Amino acid sequence: MKNKEHINQQVEATFNTLDAIEEVKVNHFFKHKVLQQLKNQKEEKTSLFAWFTPQFQMATLAFVLLLNASAILYAFSSQKNTSNSSLESFAQEYSLQSETTSLLN
């Protein structure tokens, strides 16, 4: 029984201290200022690829396209000039030029 009375006294003392708490006066812009500071902290984070800006991306894309176009033009221009001579030299080297079909008979 004594234990129960002691617990009730402590509960009553706790409620009395809660009644003694007064309202805190805060500036009405406090919430706005805190939220603004949090937003500023979030914006300060830098990404890993911050150096890869859209301008740099466009320049890289243009360089790659120019490189591919020049490679394709070089490949097709050199193919026309050397295709006939390379076929003839290949046929001569492996003795594929013959007038008869003796190999088939």
Rank of each mutant, 00 (worst) to 15 (best):
S95M: 02
L96G: 05
Q41T: 02
S83M: 15
I72M: 15
A75T: 14
K45Q: 05
M58D: 11
A13S: 11
K2M: 04
M1G: 10
A91C: 08
N105E: 14
Y74N: 07
S77M: 08
K39A: 13
A59L: 07
K25L: 11
Q37V: 12
A50V: 04
T46K: 14
T101W: 04
L66T: 10
P54F: 01
K31T: 08
N3R: 07
A71T: 13
I7A: 09
E23R: 03
S102E: 12
L104T: 11
S47M: 00
K31P: 00
E22C: 01
K42I: 11
M1Q: 12
T17I: 05
L48P: 01
L103Q: 04
I72H: 10
P54C: 00
T46Y: 04
K4N: 06
V34M: 02
N3H: 05
K45M: 03
A75N: 08
A71E: 13
K4S: 06
T82S: 12
S98T: 14
N8G: 02
K42E: 09
Q55D: 05
L65A: 01
E44G: 04
T14N: 13
S47V: 01
E23G: 06
Q36C: 01
S47W: 03
S78I: 12
N84D: 15
K4G: 00
S86D: 15
L61M: 13
E12C: 01
L65Y: 04
H28I: 08
K39L: 11
S95I: 01
S98A: 09
V34S: 01
V34Y: 06
T82L: 09
S98L: 07
N68H: 12
K39V: 01
E99K: 13
H32E: 14
S78Y: 09
W51K: 05
Q57G: 02
V11T: 09
A69W: 09
N27R: 04
S77H: 08
S86N: 15
H32S: 11
L61K: 13
A50N: 09
F52K: 02
F90Q: 02
V64M: 14
L67R: 08
L73A: 12
Q97M: 10
F15Y: 09
P54R: 00
Q36A: 03
M58H: 13
Q41R: 01
I21E: 06
P54T: 05
N68F: 13
N81D: 14
A59P: 00
Q97I: 13
A91I: 01
S47H: 10
N16F: 02
T17H: 10
F29W: 05
L65C: 04
H28K: 11
I72N: 13
E23A: 08
A59D: 09
K4V: 06
V64I: 08
E22G: 03
